[in-house]
């Protein structure tokens, strides 16, 4: 009796193993095809493989993936795989395509659990939400539904779903701004990513909460600058301590001052909302006057630290 049951389960397990191995590749291929298809639908024309040119950014604790498309070597547009947790039926994931200037090309809903016939309309082509966004630049739009005083039409009887949709698009736009408009081109982010791979992340539990101390370095005017950036759990820059520097006394050396201009401009800010360039170049970081090279290096090191922090959090989430 026991033997028969054992043999049956053994055969069943062996068969499942075989089928799993046979279907593994097609399943992967189908998933990739889905992403590529969504990219082709959402983005302006491209001739590279955007799936290999991506940067992931943490916004509100959610990983948002930005794909870059190029046509003949020129950047043709970006697609942002964004999400929201505010849907009527849980998470909604969508792909938002942007032209390089921020105009929304198209929005493809990848996954949703909204009510069939009501909220599910958000996934249909030509629905009112999509029409409200398509061909417009979010910087000219009030990003909330008309009911809340914004510019976006809602799907009748689906206010919650519509609000969630707007929320996801807004988050996607933030990621787009951060990557595409923030001065830091995707390539520079890649460099930062490489740099970040060598950074050390230390988790600190204190009474006020959990902090992540990330050590990073960059080449300053005179030798390397090493610093430790302390992030709080939601990606806010809590503090920065310079560990090593040999910059010019009175100029670059001011980075060790706890009230220096750079630190003051980014302290307490959410790193993902920051544009990584100087205010004079349209970014959100102040420089120390008379010490541009040092300030740039300092900014680069903080940026590397942030990338390291992001990948650390992502890894941690994947492990969960």
């Amino acid at each position: 009796m026991v033997l028969v049951l054992f043999v049956i389960t053994l055969i069943a397990a062996a068969m499942l193993g075989v089928v799993y191995n046979v279907t593994k590749e097609p399943i992967e291929a189908a998933k990739t095809a889905k992403t590529t298809n969504a990219l082709a639908q959402a983005m302006p024309k491209f001739d590279n493989n955007p799936a290999t040119d991506t940067v992931t950014c943490m916004i509100d604790g959610m990983p948002i993936k930005v794909y870059k498309g190029t046509l003949g070597g020129e950047v043709s547009g970006y697609a942002v795989e964004t999400m929201t947790k505010n849907g009527f039926g849980g998470e909604i994931k969508m792909m938002v395509g942007f032209k390089p200037d921020g105009e929304i090309v198209n929005i493809e809903v990848l996954q949703h659990g909204e009510t069939p016939g009501l909220g599910s309309k958000m996934a249909e082509p030509g629905n009112v939400l999509l029409v409200s966004f398509q061909g417009k630049n979010p910087k000219d739009l009030k990003m909330s539904v008309r009911k809340d005083g914004g510019d976006i039409d809602v799907i009748t009887a689906s206010t919650i779903s519509s609000r969630a949709y707007v929320d996801a698009v807004e988050r996607g736009y933030k990621a787009f701004q951060n990557i595409a408009l923030g001065g830091a081109a995707v390539n520079e982010q890649h460099a930062a990513q490489k740099e970040a791979d060598t950074c050390k992340v230390v988790v600190v539990n204190e009474e006020t909460g959990v902090y992540y101390d990330v050590e990073a370095s960059a080449q300053g005017l005179v030798g390397p600058i090493r610093l430790v950036v302390r992030f709080s759990e939601d990606g806010i820059i809590n503090d920065i301590t310079v560990v090593e520097q040999n910059e010019t006394e009175g100029y670059g050396a001011r980075i060790t001052d706890p009230n220096n201009a750079i630190l003051a401009s980014i302290k307490g800010e959410k790193a993902c909302d920051l544009k990584w360039s100087f205010k004079s170049d349209g970014g959100s970081v102040d420089g120390i006057s008379g010490a541009t090279v040092t300030s740039k290096a300092y900014m680069q090191a903080v940026q590397s630290a942030y990338t390291a922090y992001q990948s650390y959090i992502l890894k941690e989430q994947n492990n969960e």
């Binding site: 089928v19 799993y20 279907t23 097609p26 399943i27 189908a30 998933k31 095809a33 889905k34």
Partner: peptide, 9 residues
């Protein structure tokens, strides 16, 4: 389930 996921996603 595996076959469907692979061939009719």
């Amino acid at each position: 389930q595996l076959v469907m996921e692979a061939f009719v996603p």
